[in-house]
């Protein structure tokens, strides 16, 4: 099927697991950042830069952006293969969906590269 080749894990079960694992990573990051901002009401640049340039935080942030990429890929794939279909929008749907999917994948990879550039450029 033309839908399967563009999925992240090439299998529904694999995608399901990756979506869950990435969700746990992103939840942990979100809780950490919200907690940090609440405990540091007078946040300044020096502390913020020191936090984000430390190796553990860089690893945590990198893991999070990789999780965002995988999670977004899986989620956008679900949405596109559900709604950009021949049944819903006609015979051009398959070509249109492939274009959207390739665009989505390109943006996802750019996010990862951008994030690495930010984190290691501090």
């Amino acid at each position: 099927m033309v839908t399967t080749v563009t999925s992240l894990g090439r299998s529904g079960l694999s995608d399901w697991l990756i979506a869950r694992v990435s969700a746990y990573v992103m939840s942990a990051y979100l809780i950490f950042i919200v907690g940090y901002l609440m405990l540091t009401p007078e946040l300044n640049y020096a502390d913020w830069a020191a936090l984000n340039s430390s190796l553990p935080m860089r690893m945590f942030s990198l893991l999070t952006i990789l999780s965002i990429a995988a999670h977004a890929w899986i989620g956008m794939w679900c949405v596109l293969t559900d709604y950009v279909t021949v049944r819903l929008i006609g015979p051009k749907a398959t070509a249109l969906r492939i274009i959207f999917q390739l665009g989505m994948i390109a943006i996802t990879l750019l996010y990862v590269i951008w994030a690495i550039d930010i984190l290691w450029g501090i």
Partner: peptide, 15 residues
């Protein structure tokens, strides 16, 4: 999916 760009932009600026 699109907000990630906004969050990264804010992170980049702040750092």
């Amino acid at each position: 999916f699109f907000s990630v760009a906004i969050f990264l932009w804010l992170l980049e600026g702040s750092l």
